[in-house]
């Protein structure tokens, strides 16, 4: 304060005018808001907008590794659309997102309702439940891959020695099995996010409402359906939006668990775009493939946000 005061005191008349102009500018709410938002906008432009614009530009060119290529218009998009592996990857992405989100939501809700009760070691259990979410995906996917190993799977070993199976189960070596294994691992990893967020939502609901409903004769299901669920809906929608975005653009889990195999049966858009763009060096085609995610995610988010807005209106 002393320094600032003495500096201001020592300032020349011209500088004093400038300082007072700056103060006046900062007193304007609009300008202050702009100044405070600027760092965030710069980060967004540098790390989100710039790569996004570059991806659009790449997708319109024949750029490949070490060769800038030339403008090809929508050729990369039309090629991708007729690509049978991409078609499989697109269907897989929708399937994977749909089922993983359903399971994460159902199990997350169930877990949140359980954790909302009072029991011993409640805090410890709530904290430990977050472990799958905290462990880096690459590490947990590796651990699952070992558990599903075609030859040395501990699951097969357990099931075989407990007499449940007589032959190994093809966890990752059959396309359908591998896809469901991926859904399972994604559910295991993402369920805590649902549970903890829904739990936070549950704790904002006043117990008085439940008591009043109970006094009116509502059973547990009725209390959930008519009291808890409507009040939890906004939180649920936010969690589902986040989850759909993360699951639809998932890469790490599939890359480590199956690499998109066997025979492309578990490729997602992100893993296939990586194989084409990065591993094969066809950057333009890879960018076009990855951009197919954008309209789908945009539509999902738009519909859900509109729904939320309508709910808020009510």
């Amino acid at each position: 304060m002393v320094g600032a005061g003495s500096a201001a005191g020592a300032a020349l008349p011209g500088e004093r005018v400038r300082i007072s102009r700056l103060t006046r500018m900062l007193e304007s709410e609009k300008l202050l808001a702009a100044a405070l938002l600027a760092p965030g906008v710069v980060i967004l432009v540098l790390f989100i907008a710039y790569p996004f614009v570059m991806a659009i530009w790449f997708s319109l060119t024949s750029i490949r590794v070490g060769d800038a290529g030339e403008f090809v218009g929508l050729a990369n998009f039309t090629k991708a659309w007729s690509d049978t592996i991409f078609q499989v990857a697109f269907k897989n992405t929708v399937f994977y997102t749909f089922w993983a989100t359903i399971f994460k939501f159902a199990l997350g809700m169930w877990l949140a309702l359980l954790l909302n009760r009072h029991f011993r070691f409640k805090r410890l259990i709530r904290a430990s439940m977050l472990l799958p979410f905290i462990i880096p995906t690459v590490l947990s996917a590796f651990a699952w891959r070992w558990m599903f190993d075609p030859t040395f799977s501990v699951m097969n070993w357990l099931l075989f020695h407990s007499g449940v199976i007589t032959d190994r189960l093809p966890f990752l070596s059959d396309g359908d099995w591998a896809m469901w294994c991926a859904v399972l691992v994604n559910t295991w990893r993402g369920m805590p996010f649902f549970a903890i967020t829904l739990l936070a939502g549950l704790q904002t609901i006043s117990p008085d409402l439940h008591e009043a409903a109970a006094l009116d004769g509502a059973n547990a299901w009725h209390r959930f359906w008519h009291v808890t669920w409507p009040l939890l809906m906004p939180v649920t929608l936010v969690v589902v939006v986040f989850s759909v975005i993360q699951t639809f653009s998932d890469f790490q889990l599939i890359y480590v668990l199956t690499g998109g195999g066997p025979a492309n049966s578990t490729h997602l858009i992100a893993t296939y775009a990586y194989q084409i763009g990065v591993a094969s060096g066809l950057l333009g085609e890879g960018a076009a493939l990855s951009l197919f995610m954008f309209p789908v995610l945009f539509a999902v988010v738009w519909v859900q946000l509109r729904f939320m807005k309508r709910m808020e209106g009510h």
Binding site: D149, P150, T151, F171, L172, S173, G261, A263
Partner: peptide, 12 residues
């Protein structure tokens, strides 16, 4: 063949 080979990498 061992039908797990669909999911093998070079080390399996």
């Amino acid at each position: 063949h061992d039908e797990g080979g669909f999911a093998w990498d070079d080390s399996n």
